[in-house]
């Protein structure tokens, strides 16, 4: 059940990605409507983060293309915001909360320019939105996991983007933070922003997301939650029927083939 939409916010066409020669995403082809609050769901190692990284051009694609608002990433970069996994950085880095949030404004500043007062205002406003305004001077290593996640979200909010990609924003955070973050995402979506979230907690899929992508090395389903989040499709996503695909992947790696032949 893969529902394609007209005039999508995100369109992925025939995307294949490999890590170390081993294909981890096979022929992904989907589109997401504008303004959707969308969850990417799948078991561990299904390639959820890889999918987002491929969209963000952080990993090389073997084939296919990605379009955001019918344009390439380079053309719409300023409208795109990305929240990496919290664990992807070293929180011992010598910086304050405000320093990190201000990094969201670097794109608009350009080279050689230091953050202006307006950028500081924007950063403080974003911190207020995530309920962290009291922590602006705090050294980032002193934050709890939930607070770190809020800081990352605040950094994304300062970008005033039209589409947000969040990689596991709810992993390892407390219940209050999860609720607060979800509320912010919901408000953004109400304002017409498109939100795409890598998510692993099946319990909260239905209340959180209106659009769901089921992923396990290949696209199982993409569509409105009601039609996609069904026992049959979940069984297909999480069930162990994919050993064949994994084994072929290993063979490709061993033989050092390219996942797609070069034309």
């Amino acid at each position: 059940m893969i529902q394609q939409v007209e005039n999508p916010a995100l369109e992925i066409h025939d995307l294949t990605v490999s890590y170390d020669k081993k294909p981890v995403l096979w022929g992904i082809d989907l589109s997401i409507p504008r303004g959707a609050l969308c969850g990417i769901i799948g078991p561990n190692g299904a390639g959820k983060s890889t999918l987002i990284k491929a969209i963000m051009n952080l990993v090389d694609m073997n084939s296919g293309y990605v379009k955001l608002f019918d344009q390439t990433l380079d053309e719409v970069r300023k409208k795109v915001s990305y929240v990496p996994q919290r664990e992807s950085v070293d929180w011992d880095f010598p910086a304050s909360v405000l320093d990190v949030v201000l990094m969201g404004r670097y794109a608009n500043l350009g080279l050689f320019k230091n953050p202006r007062r307006a950028d500081k205002d924007a950063a403080l406003k974003a911190l207020e939105m995530v309920g962290m305004e009291k922590y602006s001077k705090r050294q980032i290593s002193q934050l709890s996991g939930g607070q770190q996640q809020r800081v990352f979200l605040a950094r994304a909010l300062t970008q005033n983007a039209d589409i947000y990609f969040l990689d596991e924003p709810f992993s390892g955070v407390d219940a209050a933070t999860e609720k607060a973050i979800f509320q912010i995402l919901k408000n953004l979506s109400k304002d017409g922003k498109t939100i795409i979230v890598v998510h692993h907690d099946l319990q909260s899929v239905e209340p959180y997301f209106e659009w769901v992508i089921l992923l396990n090395l290949r696209l199982v389903a993409s569509g409105p939650t009601k039609q996609v989040f069904t026992p049959a499709l979940l069984e297909e996503t999480y069930g162990g029927k994919l050993t064949l695909l994994t084994e072929v992947g290993e063979l490709v790696k061993k033989g050092e083939f390219e996942a797609r032949e070069k034309q």
Binding site: L58, D74, F93, A95, M103, A107
Partner: peptide
């Protein structure tokens, strides 16, 4: 920024 979070730096261009 590239010392702290290289991925984010790349995404913002």
């Amino acid at each position: 920024l590239i010392s702290f979070d290289q991925q984010f730096a790349k995404v913002i261009g």
